[in-house]
């Protein structure tokens, strides 16, 4: 595995030693109102590793991923990204995270290229058209970068979510239902993305598709009981 990768943090290029990056969950419990969805989950994930979280609908897979990127808070327990002897809460570590989920929407009235340029700029990066084209080619949207997203099919929109997530070369990739709405070629692209991520960091994948269990070095099975 490469020792360091470049991550943009508030306009600074930060060299992150992915070998020193750890995700630590300690007794994480979460729920909605009185209903507990996740109970006392503890785990540690290191560089180059992939965790698959599986379980039935409503078992808390998406809730767990939302907590991992700080969009939702656990009711108890801690989630930390540990790096260089420092521990960061998920909302402090978003520059390290790439998130793909069916409920992640990009701007439909803008083109794919405009979307990616915009998200690069707000992340403090400068992306050339060539870099955008390379990224679009990688996720199978070559030649469609100047089309408005409103004209995209659901599968193309999902591919574009990958471009959004990979834009800043995140060492942590969070994939919720990674192949939903994708065709066979799209599923292959996802497989390539997950494989490539092993060299630059870690992946956490939430799925209820048994075929996707093979992505994981570890499988965390959640149940609704």
């Amino acid at each position: 595995m490469s020792a360091t990768i470049r991550v943009v943090k508030s306009g600074w290029v930060e060299l992150v030693d992915v070998n020193a990056l750890r995700l630590e969950l300690s007794n994480v419990t979460a729920g909605y109102g009185s209903r507990v969805v996740l109970r006392a989950i503890s785990l540690t994930l290191g560089p180059g590793e992939t965790l698959v979280v599986s379980g039935a609908n409503g078992s808390g897979k998406s809730t767990l991923l939302r907590m991992l990127c700080g969009l939702q808070q656990p009711t108890s327990g801690t989630i930390q990204y540990c790096h260089d002897g420092m521990a960061y809460a998920p909302e402090q570590a978003r520059h390290l995270l790439g998130w793909v989920a069916p409920d992640l929407m990009l701007y439909r009235e803008l083109t794919a290229r405009e979307n990616l340029h915009f998200f690069a700029e707000v992340r403090g990066m400068h992306c050339s058209d060539m870099q955008i084209d390379e990224l679009l080619e990688r996720i199978g949207l070559s030649g469609r970068g100047d089309d408005r997203v409103i004209g995209y099919s659901s599968g193309m929109t999902h591919r574009l979510r990958y471009a959004y997530a990979l834009l800043h070369h995140p060492p942590v990739l969070l994939l919720d239902e990674p192949t939903v709405t994708l065709d066979a070629q799209g599923a292959t692209v996802v497989e390539q993305v997950v494989d490539a991520q092993r060299a630059v960091g870690m992946s956490i994948i939430a799925t209820n598709d048994p075929r996707e269990l093979r992505f994981g070095d570890y499988v965390l099975t959640l149940n609704t009981a």
Binding site: L71, R94, A101, D103, M105, Y107, R108, R123
Partner: peptide, 10 residues
């Protein structure tokens, strides 16, 4: 339009 999530993360 549910774009707030993408904006919030980036």
């Amino acid at each position: 339009t549910r774009t707030a999530l993408a904006l919030r993360l980036a």
